[in-house]
Design a protein around this nucleic acid. Structure first.
Lengths: 309, 309
DNA sequence: GGGCGAGCATAAGATGAACTGATGCTGGAT
DNA sequence: ATCCAGCATCAGTTCATCTTATGCTCGCCC
């Protein structure tokens, strides 16, 4: 009988490309992964890997088994969800991964709500960039995460995940309150405060500037929007800031509405949508998002923006 | 992540009723099964069992998980079949369970064919009564088995198995060549040589006598048809004998065609129909059955029998 | 071409999980 | 009341998984 833990390793090898990368992802040594995959080959009765230079590649049979592995792992997720639904009370760990702004703004009240409604749950929250959420879910480091996309930086859906809508936000150019900038086009000569390269915020910033006809000149990199806004207030540059991070607007900062929006979704492993802990987490987060939405203004004046509202 | 070996134990507990029976079926101790099921409860996060007198019963959540377990186990079988199909050559064990007459008549040539076509296969044959085949497949003691039913003793399909047609045989009353019996109705006063109670042959024999208006008087029990026919030839009684076991007809034995047939099917775990080893085994057995069919006569004269041919 | 590091496979050992055997408790049948 | 069935738990044994060490091949860069 094929072992699901080994199937996961094979699946992740197909995705990550090297045994070392899989070992890192699972906090194992490469040796452990190598031996487990050899054991899987013996179980399967056919070669699944072949040496290719320093690396290994999947054989045709290996690729077939990766596809089947997704079905098996999905069935296991569904089984776990079904049995949790049938149980009378939620218990056990629930690991939530969220980006820093959400941890600051949404998670406090969501955790309180979850703790009151389901005292048996062990709640764990970790800060995690949305781009890292799919891997963390796949590798079972978290059970629920937050993923995002911007109009101007769309993200393809990941087939291993299910998602549910949480937030749809305006996006602003944050500028000094004493400056003369009226539109993003006026910020060509400004210094930009950007997120770390590789993050979606960074990509979105680059593309927004490009849409306005120039390449953003990055002077600072900061991922924490509280820090970003403090720099803007101190006249150290301009920055792209989503709605969730913009309020309360610090003194010295003015917001200019932009022609894009950011969407945030709750993500979980496909098959686990019905798991009551996932359902509960989504409900608590949605409630927190609703409360947040009720407390912040909307400043987008564009006809397109209006249509969206 | 739920462990499939534990899911199998839970599934088998639902079917067998006690932890001791599951332990016997898996050649484990009850203690090992108890501990593994406790571990499954911890994995699942809900109680799956509750004490009921000396025994345990499944909770509602336990029943839900048993249903899900069948899906998971089926997905694993499919994965194994798919990867075996993708491999270039068959290798590994193939365990075939067959009733003694089939082992004697069909298996020799089937094994030769398999050995020639797939030298990487490790072939294992065990004698196994058709009534025991479903459990043996479920418990992975065998990979392919032979199951049967008679018109007069139908057997409900087992949802955990897939099957494929192999043989459709005549059924005879074997009597002494020197006797005066012409029909089964004439055998009311005869001593019967019957199979062991609990076997399908035994049940079919009882029912055939009942259909002829009397209760068969069992004097001997024997499961080996070679022995049965020797006893008939020695005038020790009459017996129900299927076509596969009847030929070559020993001296001193006469066959009377009966108004029922026996069907034999190749059985395997559901989901594993596409496994090339199963495909190969079925093909080899079907070929052997075809060869056997070409070498034996048919003596059934009844219109209904003729229709069937 | 040589040196260095990446990447993997294998062997030996350490650690954790699965299984056995012993024990004690509850229950069901006689 | 007695005996045996059935299970849960504990302690010990056995087996599986993971780590560490080692050696090999490959690929990149100087």
């Amino acid at each position: 009988m094929l072992d699901p833990r080994r199937l996961r390793l094979l699946r992740d090898l197909a995705r990550l490309g090297t045994i070392s990368a899989v070992a890192d992802a699972h906090t194992y040594t490469a040796s452990a992964v190598s031996q487990q995959l050899s054991a899987l080959e013996r179980e399967a009765g056919v070669p699944l890997l072949e040496r290719s230079g320093r690396r290994v590649e999947l054989t045709a049979a290996g690729h077939v088994l990766v596809e089947q592995a997704e079905l098996v792992l999905g069935a296991l997720e569904q089984a776990a969800a079904a049995v949790a639904t049938a149980g009378s009370a939620l218990s056990g760990p629930l690991r939530i991964g969220a980006f820093p702004t959400a941890v600051r703004t949404l998670l406090p009240s969501a955790l309180v709500a979850l703790g009151v409604r389901h005292p048996g749950l062990e709640l764990h929250v970790a800060e995690l960039d949305p781009a890292a959420v799919p891997d963390a879910l796949r590798e079972r480091r978290i059970d629920v995460g937050l993923v995002q996309d911007y109009d101007i930086a769309p993200v393809a859906p990941d087939p291993a995940l299910g998602t549910a809508d949480l937030l749809d936000e305006e996006v602003y150019l944050a500028v000094s309150a004493t400056g003369r900038i009226r539109r993003i086009e006026d910020a060509a000569a400004e210094m930009w405060i950007m997120a770390s390269p590789g993050t979606l915020c960074h990509t979105a910033g680059l593309r927004l500037a490009q849409s306005a006809g120039y390449a953003a000149r990055a002077r600072h990199h900061a991922d924490d929007f509280t820090t970003v806004l403090a720099l803007v207030a101190a006249d150290q540059g301009v920055a792209i800031v989503p709605q969730l991070a913009a309020y309360p607007v610090p003194d010295g900062v003015r917001l200019i509405a932009l022609d894009t929006r950011r969407r945030t979704r709750v993500a979980y492993r496909r098959g686990s949508a019905g798991h009551p802990a996932i359902v509960a987490a989504h409900a608590a987060l949605a409630e927190a998002a609703g409360n947040w939405r009720a407390g912040v203004p909307t400043i987008n004046q564009s006809p397109r923006g209006g249509d969206r509202r």
